[in-house]
Simulated assay, not measured.
Amino acid sequence: MMGTESTGFLYPFLDAEERNADALLADLAASAQAKARESAALQRATLEECAEQITAAAAAMAERFARGGRMYTFGNGGSSTDAATLADLFSRPPHGRPLPAWSLAANQAVLTALGNDVGFDLVFSRQLIAHSGQADIAVALSTSGNSEDLTVALAEAKRRGLLTIGFAGYDGGRFATDGNVDFCFVVRSQSVHRIQESQALLGYQLWATVQQHLAGGEGPR
């Protein structure tokens, strides 16, 4: 049964006493504009903070792709969708060179079989054991940076010699501290929505910089 927690902290106009349609629409517009400004400011700050890491990570990724490496992405819930979007951007780009990339959550049969037979904590690490090689890249997306199935997979990827990349929010969680992530991009926010919006932009910037390296450039200016 669903809880009765108020949503007023997200959408205060929904719980307002005001029932005038024009006033409610004005409140809705103001709320949307405030969230857009907040998101844009966070994206700018995150890109600035992560700029050097993006350049370094993209160079390392390009080197692995040039050696025939593949990229595996994974996440839970909304982050799983973001991981699939990132894999699709690399494998079917709007322009530039298509690169081998797969979301490890894409195959429902494999995911549910592993969850049922060996436990959900191993659904991604077991796939890396089965498919990955030392030239490959593992990319985990999370808002907390603490999900057990993701940290287990990153530890396995690190043991197998893969390049490991993590996207996290808040303070980075275990992604930022356990030593298994070569490049950790942290979106410093307490809002899941804002974290995922900034992570999407970071992923796009990472892809664009990889493409620049593979084309012989130094990265986007």
Results as ranks from 00 to 15, higher is better:
140 A>Q: 01
206 L>G: 07
199 Q>R: 09
27 D>Y: 06
221 R>N: 09
23 A>L: 13
54 I>F: 05
54 I>V: 13
150 L>S: 05
221 R>S: 12
66 A>K: 12
205 Q>I: 01
5 E>Q: 10
218 E>D: 14
139 V>H: 02
60 A>Q: 01
52 E>C: 01
8 G>M: 05
83 A>S: 14
15 D>C: 04
180 N>G: 09
141 L>C: 08
39 S>E: 15
119 G>E: 03
14 L>H: 14
32 A>G: 05
75 G>R: 06
150 L>K: 06
65 F>W: 02
217 G>V: 09
50 C>W: 00
152 V>R: 09
176 A>V: 08
147 S>A: 14
145 G>C: 06
152 V>C: 03
169 G>L: 08
182 D>I: 00
29 A>V: 15
156 E>Q: 15
212 Q>I: 00
91 S>L: 05
17 E>P: 09
166 G>W: 03
168 A>S: 15
15 D>S: 12
43 Q>T: 14
48 E>Y: 05
68 G>W: 10
199 Q>L: 15
177 T>F: 01
29 A>E: 12
142 S>K: 03
95 H>R: 15
156 E>N: 13
141 L>D: 00
204 Y>A: 05
210 V>A: 08
190 Q>F: 11
45 A>N: 06
21 A>D: 15
168 A>W: 00
73 T>H: 01
196 Q>M: 10
200 A>G: 13
90 F>Q: 09
30 A>L: 10
60 A>L: 03
61 M>I: 07
81 T>A: 14
30 A>D: 11
218 E>C: 05
139 V>I: 11
48 E>Q: 15
44 R>S: 11
190 Q>T: 10
198 S>H: 14
68 G>N: 03
55 T>A: 06
203 G>W: 03
210 V>I: 04
170 Y>Q: 10
63 E>A: 15
41 A>R: 13
5 E>W: 02
45 A>T: 04
123 V>A: 03
201 L>T: 14
13 F>Y: 15
56 A>W: 00
147 S>F: 12
140 A>W: 01
92 R>K: 11
